[in-house]
Amino acid sequence: MDIFLQQIINGLVQGSIYALVALGYTMVYGIMGLINFAHGEVVMIGALVSITVTGTLAAAGMPLGLAGLCGLVAAILSCMALGWSLERIAYRPLRGSPRLTPLITAIGMSIVLQNLAMIVWGRNYMTFPPLLPKINFEFAGTHFTLVQVVIVLLSAAMMAGLVFLVYRTKLGMAMRATAQNPAVASLMGVNTNRVIAAAFVVGSALAAVAGVMVGSYYEIAHYQMGFMLGLKAFTAAVLGGIGNLAGAMAGGVLLGIIEALGAGYIGDLTGGFLGSHYQDIFAFVVLIIVLMFKPSGLFGEKTGDRA
């Protein structure tokens, strides 16, 4: 039972990170129907920028906590700029082109960003400075750290903020209108280009925070860290029903927990035949099973659009 609870906690932490990244996918997808494959790379850039800024400031004598905060802000700002430029340079000129064209562009941008990061930061793993003191908590036989607590709380706060933005502000209303029907929304005076850019910027800000979280959780960052994370987060978004905010959050947390439980129990379940190195297949197996029964994800509405 202790192991069970422990794995739930680990899964919750990982899942909150997935959820933050999944929100970026789902916002862009919901509004323009595009899988932004480069989103995972935005997470990576966020993590690497925050390492550089934090490291430089801390070396200049700033206290680590403050330097970390500056690093986080720098990461958010640079990722917002990156998200905006991605949309402006790569996707906006392709509005209205065949469906797969922006997908290839997204893949191209993902390759570009990865290799740019490799040129700038090198191909070695970078150690993430310990932003938070290492405090351990014990609860009902489980152990968790301050970093984990902060990750869960901070992602919950960010998600609440996003929900507020989307459902309580004018920009959010414009976003929802554009998602439903861009042509009609623009007739109603919504500047759809600005709304789409805003979705990219907001999604990238969430991604930057997620990047800093992943970095401080695993204490390393790398130019390739974004790809698999982005893939898992996208899986989470689809699991929940892509284009749906609640779905992305639920999908992210669910995926994190399933993975953690799967990794913890697969050995026992299969009599030792399959080991914990099969962890990565859980995400996909669960996805396939869910989609077999609910073809548009757990919370997705039935859509009539075609392939």
């Binding site: 893939l231 996208f234 689809v238 297949i281 996909f284 396939i288 989609l291 077999m292 073809p295 392939a307």
Partner: peptide
């Protein structure tokens, strides 16, 4: 066969997952 009902991008992610499952095995 399990993906016949899926449309567009849902199919894309399932096929992607399938490819990863095969590679992991």
């Amino acid at each position: 066969s399990p993906t016949l009902k899926l449309r567009g991008d849902y199919l894309a992610i399932v096929t992607l997952g399938f490819g990863e499952i095969v590679r992991i095995f």
